[in-house]
Computed example of a mutant assay.
Amino acid sequence: MYIPPAFRDDDVAGIRATMRAARLATLVTATADGLMATPLPLILHDAEGPHGVLYGHVAKANPQWRTAPVGEAMALFTGPDAYVTPSWYATKQETGKVVPTWNYVAVHAYGPVEFFEDAARLLDVVTRLTALHEGSRAAPWAVSDAPAAFVEAQLRGIVGLRLPIARLEAKRKMSQNRSAEDRAGVAAGLAASEDPRDQAVAAMIPE
């Protein structure tokens, strides 16, 4: 990922928060057959290894897990994003030398990916994934709510994955390269939007 110095994000806590907030990631592997990608939810376990470990699962019918990767795999996470119109810049009135852009947050995690079919490990992954996404519900559903035999049958249709993170690249492009006046205009413009995604980006624009 191309990261100009102004947009480089080295805040480990913030990077992990972005990864956890992304409800869906994309696993990408390079193979002898070309690039392969699968959108899927992933769990970050940051207590393992220097950068943490990602866990998830794919369908057993998905050819990606059977196709040997060449080099590292990559997991893509995206955070809030928004279109930025030049009309919000003070510079537009001063010189007119402005163009549209996009503000966004992105994290790329790299590492060797391992696929596994062990039923106990699979059950642990799907149980943790379920608890993560059901936890905020008033009456959360649990894997144990389903009949054990049914769960066992479902597990036979998936393959688990483990990706120890070897390195991270993170980018937070939030108008840091613009003047304070231009940033204020972007923040005000996005805050006035009715789209909650724009409002989320507005709150991230530095003063």
Score class of each variant (00 low, 15 high):
82 A>W: 06
83 Y>M: 00
84 V>S: 00
85 T>Q: 02
85 T>Y: 02
86 P>E: 00
87 S>P: 00
87 S>A: 15
88 W>F: 09
88 W>H: 00
90 A>C: 05
91 T>R: 02
91 T>F: 03
92 K>R: 11
92 K>P: 01
92 K>L: 09
93 Q>M: 09
93 Q>K: 11
93 Q>V: 05
94 E>W: 00
94 E>H: 09
98 V>R: 03
98 V>W: 00
99 V>G: 03
99 V>L: 10
99 V>N: 03
101 T>K: 07
102 W>L: 02
103 N>I: 08
103 N>P: 11
104 Y>W: 11
104 Y>K: 02
105 V>N: 12
106 A>S: 14
107 V>Q: 05
108 H>D: 04
108 H>L: 07
108 H>Y: 08
109 A>R: 08
109 A>T: 07
110 Y>C: 06
110 Y>H: 13
112 P>Q: 14
113 V>H: 03
113 V>Q: 00
114 E>S: 14
115 F>K: 07
115 F>L: 08
115 F>D: 05
116 F>K: 11
117 E>I: 07
119 A>N: 08
119 A>I: 15
120 A>F: 04
120 A>W: 00
121 R>L: 14
121 R>N: 14
122 L>V: 07
122 L>M: 11
122 L>G: 06
124 D>T: 11
126 V>K: 12
128 R>K: 10
128 R>A: 14
129 L>V: 11
131 A>G: 08
132 L>E: 14
132 L>S: 09
133 H>M: 07
135 G>M: 04
135 G>C: 06
135 G>P: 04
136 S>M: 11
137 R>M: 10
137 R>P: 01
138 A>D: 14
138 A>H: 07
139 A>M: 09
140 P>G: 05
141 W>P: 03
141 W>N: 05
142 A>I: 05
142 A>P: 02
143 V>H: 03
144 S>E: 15
144 S>V: 13
145 D>Y: 14
145 D>S: 09
145 D>Q: 14
145 D>E: 12
146 A>H: 03
146 A>Y: 01
147 P>R: 01
148 A>T: 12
149 A>H: 04
149 A>R: 02
150 F>I: 04
150 F>D: 14
150 F>C: 01
152 E>S: 13
153 A>D: 05
154 Q>Y: 05
155 L>W: 06
155 L>C: 10
156 R>D: 15
157 G>R: 06
157 G>W: 04
159 V>G: 02
159 V>T: 07
160 G>A: 10
160 G>D: 04
161 L>M: 15
